[in-house]
Amino acid sequence: MSIESQIVQFLFTGIALGSIYAMVALGFNIIYNATGILNFAQGEFVMLGGLVMVWLSVTLGLPMPLAFAVTVAAVMAVGALFERLAIYPLKKPPVLILIIITLAGSIIFKGSAMLLWGKKTYSLPHFSSEQPIAVLGATILPQTFWIIGFLAAVVAALALFFNCTMLGKAMRACSFNPTAASLVGINVKRIVLLSFAVSAAIGAIAGIVFTPVVLMEYDRGTMLALKGFCAAVLGGLGNGAGAVVAGLLIGILESFGAGFISSAYKDAIALLVLLLVLVVRPGGLLSRGEASRLKDF
């Protein structure tokens, strides 16, 4: 395999991985913007998306599009329920408590998934053919293009939602100033609920498109959440475009790092980037703002 083909191969692998990180980062940002909470259970939404999809489409034999829709709806419901049961009842909880609650949530989701699905690894058929496509000497799975396509679709849908719908604008208003938003008649509590539902949906989509390539099991969430968080911080917390760019960047860095530097330290790359960003440029790569402007999360 020539070095050029290797580079193309690494690039596509990185973009596919990065798309997933980007979707997780987007999920982080939506909740963060609405509430200032870092949802540690974000990776579990991805895991749930994958496993519910497997259950519906493989075990129950539902047609793919229907199973897809039901899965997204189900995980959305889980996200909303989590908010209603664990976040909503607390009146002005301190941030520390919120962190611990989402941490507890993630462990509970993981534990429940383990009880429901066991510790087995599940696979899902590819959306289209499994026959790799040759590009410049590299071989790329059609599913890779599905993943990239879904990331584009999610980004487009979010852009439309936040810029062109009343609800989306209300959410943005909340992220700028919740008090002011409630003064102009926006129901902030409902926006918080919505943010959990939307970011659960994004997580579910990521899980569904990702599972055919990498299989899925109950404890995949933590690492995905960590990588997604790296992307979110690198892109500047709360910054949607930043999350996508940073997610892709981390995926590509990882893939090249594993290929050319050391596969043993593959997972450390994203984390080192995170620590470095925290030290050098806490506002994220794309932000011109100062660290002090960051929300007190």
């Binding site: 050391s262 620590l275 925290l278 660290a291």
Partner: peptide, 28 residues
């Protein structure tokens, strides 16, 4: 030093990343 300079709970994620890096290093 860097994590605590920042407001809020950057320490949570900074330490989580640090913990993973140590874990990876001990393995590698």
């Amino acid at each position: 030093l860097p994590c605590l300079r920042l407001k809020g709970h950057y320490l949570a994620m900074g330490t989580l990343a640090f913990g993973e890096i140590i874990h990876i290093t001990l393995n590698a």
